[in-house]
Design a protein around this nucleic acid. Sequence first.
RNA 1: CGGGGUGUAGCUCAGCCUGGUAGAGUACUGCCUUCGGGAGGCAGGAGCCGAGAGUUCGAAUCUCUCCACCCCGACCA
Length: 491
Amino acid sequence: MSKGLPKRSEDYSLWYNELVKKADLAENSPVRGCMIIKPYGFAIWEKMQAKLDQMFKETGHSNAYFPIFIPKSYLSKEADHIEGFAKECAVVTHYRLKQAEDRSGLVVDPEAKLEEELIIRPTSETVIWNTYRNWIQSYRDLPLKLNQWVNVVRWEMRTRLFLRTTEFLWQEGHTAHATREEAKEETLKMLQVYTDFVQDYMAIPVIQGIKTESERFAGAVDTYCIETLMQDGRALQAGTSHFLGQNFAKAFEVKFATREGALEYVWGTSWGVSTRLMGALIMAHSDDKGLILPPRLAPIQVVIVPIFKNEEQLEAISAAVQGIVHQLKERNISVKYDDRDTHKPGWKFAEYELKGVPVRIAMGPRDLENSTAEIARRDSSEKQTCNQQDIGSTVQHMLSGMHNSIYQKALKFRDQNITTVDSYENFKEVLDTRGGFVRAHWDGTIETEQRIKDETKATIRCIPINEEAKAGICIYSGKSSSQQVIFAKAY
RNA sequence: CGGGGUGUAGCUCAGCCUGGUAGAGUACUGCCUUCGGGAGGCAGGAGCCGAGAGUUCGAAUCUCUCCACCCCGACCA
């Protein structure tokens, strides 16, 4: 393991890239734009998955699986949907390879051309709604609330590990309802599930909002989102929940008989979060020493490092450590005892700081004499000496305190970096100097939004849904505006 | 697809201008001393110098062609 990480203040982007690699989260794959998620990175993703999956089940959803291949014709059925995804689809055209004539390798067998080309799912609305047509006949079949954990492919031009990759992992929920109200309620309920998860588990504050027409999901009536702010002042969309109206039901002829016997189109929603959350997790909290993981998602919550000169010392320390491990496991705290003699304590300290392990316990001969241990917090770098018998409770308090502490820190940062502006001059100045979220009045037109984007690279992240709408004047056009919206430069 | 850059040890790179036995740091292997914040010494293994063609007695180095990757722009969760 090489030493040192670039400093955030010097090159934030490089810091992120290096951190992802050095903390053993992920690396680039032989295929451009794809990533190899390493065991440590995947362990974090698994913890996210486990909690989210539980939350989905608790809100009445079931998991299912739909195929990765989608007939090309399906994509064409919803007009806006084609528009949004056509440009980034990977397409399967053949089903066989053969030996080249000159034996130089394998070539695509031109004889094996598919009758209908298949696209690799960029999202699964089409195949799912095509299936829902067969599953839904009556109001008794509704609501239908499914989720799937899968990979999807969107052929991106520029990629970055976790933040934007050609293939990524996500979950996509797809629900069907009898009424508009119920579907809207579902859309907002899942937005709230995401909000709770990101705030309570990832320790990142969010702004809930609704997307403008140009940022809306292709095929949705409304797209709701949660927006987060990274340490460099750029925004990151952490999750989206779409109210699909009857768009897909109409495209795929999904109708149901009402209680009264009338035939009506079904109302739909879809919602997803992806491995991009890993990017948010990394960028929201970590420092120049490495990752800072919120305790509830850390694969290892506590690491114990023995400090010893010889075999006898190690044995004596190990015996005392067993009691500590027991105390921690009793409290469902995940703990790793690193008694390797191949690395020195200082090396291990740096290593676990790089990997964001929330609490480190060090125990050496001096501690052994005093029945103590040294406990260090990753987020604040504070160290304290603790009696061995109190370690379980001390660590437990420390972990929950740490969650609150990093959340509060992120919240304070976020709030300090929301700037309200009343003029375009001021708007540009804020974007150029401090970045962050910029709250401003907007006249509601695509033209204004586009011009601002072209001139400043800032986009409308969302129209907040938890703020009182106050009328005003658009900073760009001077026309009337019904509400302030949130602008930012975004990932 | 435009504009710029880079390909040499697992990784980061020097060497190229001015052709002459393939280098450093780090990582790796072994031994000794160390061990409360990324230790030190000694020894060792490691390379089709991106690919092909050319010039030359001789090419990592000069010439040409190709390929790959990275950065900056146009698209996006």
